[in-house]
Structure formats: C-alpha cells, structure tokens
Amino acid sequence: MKVKGKVFKYPDNVDTDVIIPARYLNTSDADELARHCMEDIDKDFVKKVKAGDVIVAGWNFGCGSSREHAPLVIKTCKTGCVIAKSFARIFYRNAINIGLPILECPEAAEEISFGDEVSVDFDSGVITDMTTGKTYRAAAFPPFIQNIISSGGLLASLKKHSS
C-alpha cells in the first residue's frame, strides 16, 4: 500500500485535546467529530486536507487522553498516514487497532517541511520527500502487530483467532 500527499507539519507533544477537543466528545459519530480534527492546533486543517495528505510531527504525538476519537478523526479526514519522531503509547495502540497507518521515523519527521510532497510505501517503510528528493526508512512493525494490521484491525484479528 502506498500514499502520496502534501505535508501538514506539527511540533512535539501534539496532544489528543488539540487533535479533537473534549467539548465535541458528546458524540461518537465519526463524520461529525472529523469536522473538528486538529481544530485547537490548526483551524485550517479540515479546510485544506485532501485524501492521502500526511501529518508529520515531533516527539510524543497523541499524548494525553485515551480517546480513540483522535486517530479516528485523522483517519476519517482521509489523512494518508502520520509520521512522527515517536507516538504516545495509547495513541499508538489505538491507531493500530483502528487501522490508521503510522510510522516512527525521527529523521524524516525532523527534515520534512510543511507543504512538501511526500510518498510513503507501507510495505517497505520507505518515505520519499518528493520536494527535496530525500528518502527515509521507518522502523518496521513487529510481526504480531503486522498481523493485526493485515487482519483489518484488532477485533477482526481476534475473531480470526477465536474461529
């Protein structure tokens, strides 16, 4: 699987409160929630994001609350993937569990700039910044997690194993 798109760049410690503020959590409707994606850090994100675009951020992306609504709104906005220097652990689990592609790659996250065109090949983990011509390789997922992803999420993999 591959995605290609423009980069939205954010700093370290992007927390789940700015990804989806709690004032909107009185619903679990993904489309309604997605209208507020990144609202408290970047009001223009939902207006500008196009299918396949890529969020690039610093250390500890998705810190704070356990709200799965955070990866859900990013996915619902059709964001191609999130590349960060590191992810907060609950966000990491949630992204895997719901099928939002995420990649840990400190070098790429440092060097790629806002507005660059990037392509990401999930099979090889290769990230290409088409604007600068540089390529990066993200760390591969352990087989256990690859299995969750290839099954289509945690519950699907659980069903597969129980049957």
Partner: peptide, 10 residues
C-alpha cells in the same frame, strides 16, 4: 493501564 475503545471492546 489506559487503552482506547477498540481495546476495551476486545
């Protein structure tokens, strides 16, 4: 430990 809703469902 804290987890998300899909982990809770599992």
């Amino acid at each position: 430990t804290g987890v998300g809703s899909t982990d809770m469902a599992a």
